[in-house]
Design a protein around this nucleic acid. Structure first.
Length: 320
DNA sequence: GATTCGTGGTA
DNA sequence: TTACCAAGAAT
């Protein structure tokens, strides 16, 4: 049997709608084939993650999405459980000091997310009666929620039809449809167009497709050491059919860490997370030898609202 | 659009 | 060991 091919990425025009696109050998529209195969695979291979359970609720989905921004699932799991147990509703978190959110964030990294999640909980309590809003635009207006997270919450929590373009889905589409190993560094208009084009018409199917294509990227179509032998769409993956050509163009920016302000900020905040009384500057001075960078990092934390300076050269996590 | 923002696991 | 990577957002 001949493997059906997806529309070439070099096509100057937008791909045809999913239900009206090219057909495979059996005459089934290709988009539907793709959806069916990936969703069927998902039915048998989806991980049992707590935020996917029926009782997670929109708040659980939202908390998980904040934590999963740039942080692996395995590291999120224990912290997620603690957060939901301690703050089962947005209003529970909203009445806490923001510093408590930062402390409970632990070592997930990018602690501004904790501050933004707290801010989002406050906004939800004040503006939405304590319920995570259902509209994409309302979600987008909350602190810490961007294009991806708004679509993810609306899709996963409320079953709506949105193009959910995270790094996993972008990689799956780059390979399966466009025929390249990696997507561009930043999300492009062409990627959004493609994702919208491939979105199933039916709302429930679209939401299922979003979760399934993301899971495929996370478990099978991984950045390195992809497992094409267990991929449900390997038979019509443009990248694989092209012989899996290596990524050309500029290497994707490595993120050096040692010696950066980020590392210093991390060390400073680690001290403050552990302390339950205001910390003297002298104690913070011990985390980094270079005074100029140390001061810059501390100032940055204060400017970001992650640290509250007190009279007498004392510092703590923010109470307000 | 390019940068900045943590942390830890893996090859 | 260095380099890359992990469900992005804000500026």
């Amino acid at each position: 049997m001949t493997a059906p091919t997806l529309p070439p990425h070099s096509s100057p025009t937008a791909p045809a709608p999913a239900t009206d696109g090219p057909a495979d050998a059996s005459g089934v529209p290709l988009g539907e084939t793709l959806h069916t195969q990936v969703i069927t695979w998902f039915d048998g291979n989806a991980r049992d993650l707590p935020w996917r359970r029926a009782d997670a609720g929109a708040w659980g989905v939202m908390v998980s999405e904040f934590m999963l921004q740039q942080t692996p699932v395995n590291r999120v799991l224990p912290v997620y459980e603690q957060w939901l147990a301690r703050w089962p509703r947005p209003a529970d978190l909203a009445k806490e000091a923001p510093g408590e959110a930062v402390r409970a964030w632990g070592r997930l990294g990018y602690p501004r997310r904790a501050l933004r999640l707290h801010g989002a909980a406050v906004a939800i309590t004040e503006r939405h009666g304590g319920d995570v809003p259902t509209e994409h635009a309302q979600l987008l207006a909350l602190p810490g929620i961007g294009e991806y997270t708004a679509a993810a919450v609306a899709s996963f929590a409320y079953g709506q039809r949105h193009a959910v373009l995270d790094t996993n889905v972008r990689r799956v589409l780059a390979r399966a449809v466009t025929g390249v190993q990696y997507p561009p560094n930043a999300t492009t208009a062409a990627e959004r167009r493609l994702a919208r084009t491939l979105l199933p018409e039916e709302e429930e199917t679209a939401a299922r497709w979003a979760a399934a294509s993301m899971e495929l990227g996370a478990l099978v179509c991984t950045a390195k050491n992809e497992s094409c032998h267990q991929c449900p769409i390997s038979g019509h993956c443009a990248w694989r059919l092209a012989g899996k050509p290596a990524h050309d163009g500029p290497p994707r920016r490595g993120q050096t860490y040692a010696g950066t302000d980020r590392q210093v900020r991390g060390k400073l905040l680690a001290v403050l997370r552990e302390a339950h009384t205001p910390v003297p500057q002298a104690m913070l001075d011990r985390v980094w030898h270079e005074p100029v960078q140390r001061a810059r990092a501390l100032d940055g934390l204060v400017a970001d609202g992650l640290v509250e300076p007190l009279p007498g050269a004392l510092y703590r996590l923010p109470l307000t």
